[in-house]
Each structure stands twice: as structure tokens, then as C-alpha cells.
């Protein structure tokens, strides 16, 4: 009886044991940033905190199935919060698109004395079976001084991916870049 108990204990311990875990996390890929001296800065824009739908407010990457289901894969996780990544990526893309404009996120210490504030509400932003990325966002641009609305609109983009996770993540980054282009047109 002791023998069977020992075997059971060994199996139990063996089932609990695992090798050293390699935790892979993903992040949206950002474009290279340009250097901008203070003399070159003609105006300043801040990106307000990006609002995500509740199903995307999680560390796991949410994948949409073709039948409409949302799948949460705990092995695919973002390295940081998705809204922060989108805000920083938008800022970099906008800065590259606008030239002499300093674009920062609201967290930045350089966020004071801005001329414009951009508010982005993400309605949909997920890969579909890793074969397609869909981005749908509403945005508003207001002046910071008198809170006057300069522009508002909605952008939708769909980019094809090759079915791999890494390409789907890259296409998600590109979709944010497309959104930044839409915003740059309104602010320019």
C-alpha cells in the first residue's frame, strides 16, 4: 500500500513540475521617432487616454473568430496595456506625419501648454483569425484653451495578414498608423 501511495505521490509531483517558463509578450511595433528640437516645435498636441471597449481591456490578446466569437488565448499576451500602446503609437505616427508638431501622450511631463487635444475611442480593434485586422475608432480634436472642437470623425481600416500571430500584430500597428494619417489630415 505504501508503494502505491509513493507512486501516486511521484505522479502528483511530476504533474506539478514544469521546466523554466519562457513568457512571450507582444507589443505594437512603433515607427522610428524623429528628433525635434524646441525651436522646431510650432505647436503641441496631446493624445488623451485612449478608450477601449471592455472586451479589449485585458492583458491577453483577444482574437475574433469568423463566427463572431471572441477568443482569449492566455498564451498570447500584450507586454503593456493596449490603450497605452495605441496612444504612444498614435503620437509617434502623428509626429512623423505633421513635421513640426510635438505630439505627446497625456502621461508625458511635456503634456502642458498643448494647443490641441485628441480623444480617440476605439470601437473595434482585433485580429480576425489572424488573417485580417479590423480597426474602427471615433476621434475628436479640440483646442485646449477654449475647448473648441476642431474636428471629429470616425475611421475604419481593414488590413490583411498572413495568418501568423506576428504578422497580425504588425498589421495592428499599421492600422494605428492609418488612423494617425486620418487625424493628421484634420490637424494639418
Amino acid at each position: 500500500m505504501k508503494f502505491f501511495a509513493l507512486i501516486f505521490a511521484i505522479l502528483l509531483v511530476a504533474s506539478c513540475a514544469s521546466g523554466p517558463a519562457i513568457d512571450t509578450r507582444y507589443t505594437l511595433s512603433a515607427p522610428p521617432a524623429k528628433s525635434l528640437s524646441s525651436s522646431q516645435v510650432a505647436r503641441k498636441v496631446i493624445i488623451a487616454p485612449v478608450l477601449l471597449p471592455s472586451e479589449l481591456k485585458r492583458s491577453s490578446i483577444v482574437v475574433k473568430r469568423s463566427n463572431g466569437e471572441m477568443a482569449i488565448d492566455d498564451d498570447l499576451r500584450w507586454a503593456g496595456s493596449l490603450d497605452d500602446q495605441i496612444a504612444r503609437l498614435l503620437a509617434l505616427h502623428l509626429e512623423n506625419n505633421l513635421g513640426n508638431t510635438l505630439v505627446v501622450t497625456e502621461q508625458s511631463t511635456a503634456a502642458s501648454d498643448a494647443d490641441f487635444s485628441i480623444t480617440v475611442d476605439i470601437n473595434r480593434f482585433e485580429p480576425v483569425e489572424f488573417e485580417r485586422v479590423e480597426l474602427d475608432a471615433s476621434w475628436t480634436v479640440v483646442t485646449l484653451g477654449d475647448q473648441r472642437k476642431v474636428a471629429s470623425g470616425r475611421s475604419s481600416h481593414q488590413l490583411q495578414a498572413d495568418g501568423s500571430v506576428s504578422d497580425a500584430i504588425k498589421k495592428m500597428s499599421d492600422a494605428v498608423g492609418k488612423l494617425a494619417e486620418d487625424l493628421a489630415i484634420e490637424i494639418r
Binding site: 481591456k57 485585458r58 492583458s59 491577453s60 492566455d74
Partner: peptide, 21 residues
């Protein structure tokens, strides 16, 4: 947000409390 993620994960994987992730 981290707490919410943890709760969400535990809801889907209650056994992870004992056996780990």
C-alpha cells in the same frame, strides 16, 4: 487592471490556484 486580469483568469482557470498556470 492587473487585479481584473487575475480575477478574469481565475474565473476561467480556477484550478490554476492549485496547479499553477
Amino acid at each position: 487592471r492587473a487585479v481584473r486580469d487575475l480575477v478574469d483568469y481565475l474565473e476561467r482557470n480556477p484550478s490554476s490556484v492549485i496547479f499553477g498556470q
